[in-house]
Design a binder for these strands. Structure first.
Lengths: 250, 250
DNA sequence: GCCCCTACTTGACGATCATCAAGTCGCTTA
DNA sequence: TAAGCGACTTGATGATCGTCAAGTAGGGGC
């Protein structure tokens, strides 16, 4: 049930939040929602480029994006950066830090971004007596895991063109689920960051974008993207178009 | 505290299992271990090639490997197979099925394999009153998530040689943690399967193996592997050797 | 012991994509 | 408005790795 309140309006609690269906469990009763609401902090918005947490930093909380966008990345000793993910409103980050009690990645706001901070120890206590909440945590993590595995296979087995198609479709779906247009959207990240995420050089990104334009699948204006032929783009992304896979026989 | 009982001896309960430190939480009291033991089923061993569960099949339980080895893979409509993981004793599979209530992957025994089957609904009930168990589940999933992300980056940003080095080091560590030799071990999977997992053609696998042999890093005899220079192999795997990364500047 | 089938190996060739180099565009700052 | 800087584009070139083809070796069944 999406509500009509505009995205930018400040949320003060979970029960009003239009993103609740994305980040809250379905069967959570009002009392539980209030309890959850009680432990959540809502820090002031982060500016573009501001870090949410640093690689190696202590794990204290997980974060749900409310507005904006976040990228996570690992920094190698030699200075190379590896972008590991992009996160949109309603998505949760920091789950990969639970085991070792510190963050494997650095999270940085790609634009002005507000988040809900959920202290993990509080969340653990709260979920002890609440099956719905415990189950929800497991589900979120399970879904992340499956997504990550799928991504792995996409990146390893598919061509540059198909990789790009996959992220474009993914972003389209995610924007669509958030009540925004699945056909026209603005990329929150640079070509460089997107390429890094996909394991492609920025030059290749540029060429692939234009190749997709020539096929009349998408239309680009800088970071503004219009999907012209979603059906065909999805076929390409799922490796079912006439274009062969990168290692189809493998 | 590893015990001296041989691996092949049938385990009848968790408290005796030498793998307990791998798949059980640290702080679980004896009563809880007994409760857990009570819900676990121990089906008769799977033959090589036998499926543990099928892609698309209902999710009922997660599985801890006791002996043997398992590979998970996805099957595309066109018949292509994508290997997503290899699992050794003490490792848990099926966690990626929690969210959608069915298995995204097919799991198949690579050799004679025995598992502990943990019905998930029972596990959920049990963990409700047991913080240690609930936390343990989260940790396992969190670790999986972090591992999967790291793997992603390895596969996307590194050369064939480095990819192979990464799995060899990973297997070495995992065998080592299980009380086996980290220097000499037998691969449970074929070159074809390993290559598929790494996104490399079998022919490339063959060539890379011999390149590593020429560098005197490893020595191979079919599936039998000996690591001759672990230090250098690890440097190669972590991208810190003199060999440049595949997209180092990205 | 022999055969066959599969796994693996080896070589030749070509496609994809990274790299290097030199641009253009657009946005910010003065 | 102009300057300057970073993001993006475009082209040329080459390395890596996939593909095709033809082999060899090893293991299970008879």
């Amino acid at each position: 049930m999406p509500q009509v309140t505009p995205l930018r309006q400040q949320r003060t609690n979970c029960s009003d939040c239009r993103l609740a269906t994305l980040c809250l469990p379905e069967n959570l009763d009002d009392v539980a929602v209030n309890d959850l609401d009680g432990i959540i902090k809502r820090p002031r918005p982060l500016d573009r480029g501001a870090p949410l947490f640093h690689s190696g930093g202590d794990f204290r909380a997980i974060y749900a994006i409310r507005t904006g966008a976040v990228k996570t990345s690992r920094l190698l000793p030699n200075g190379d950066e590896f972008v590991s993910g992009f996160y949109l409103p309603g998505e949760v980050i920091g789950l990969d830090a639970i085991n070792y009690n510190n963050h494997p990645t650095t999270a940085v706001a790609l634009e002005t971004t507000s988040v809900c901070e959920v202290p993990f120890s509080d969340l653990e206590k709260l979920s002890l007596n609440r099956p719905a909440l415990q189950r929800h945590m497991m589900r979120i993590m399970s879904r992340e895991l499956a997504t990550e595995q799928t991504l792995n296979q996409v990146l390893v087995h598919r061509s540059a063109e198909q990789r790009l198609a996959v992220v474009l479709v993914s972003l389209s779906d995610r924007f669509g689920n958030r009540g925004l247009s699945p056909k026209r959207f603005r990329l929150p990240m640079s070509r460089h960051e997107l390429g890094n995420y996909l394991g492609l050089a920025p030059e290749t990104m540029s060429r692939i974008f234009r190749r997709l334009e020539k096929q009349e699948l998408v239309c680009t204006d800088g970071r503004d993207i219009t999907l012209l032929n979603q059906t065909e783009l999805r076929l390409l992304a799922h490796g079912e178009s006439e274009v062969p896979l990168r290692s189809g026989r493998a």
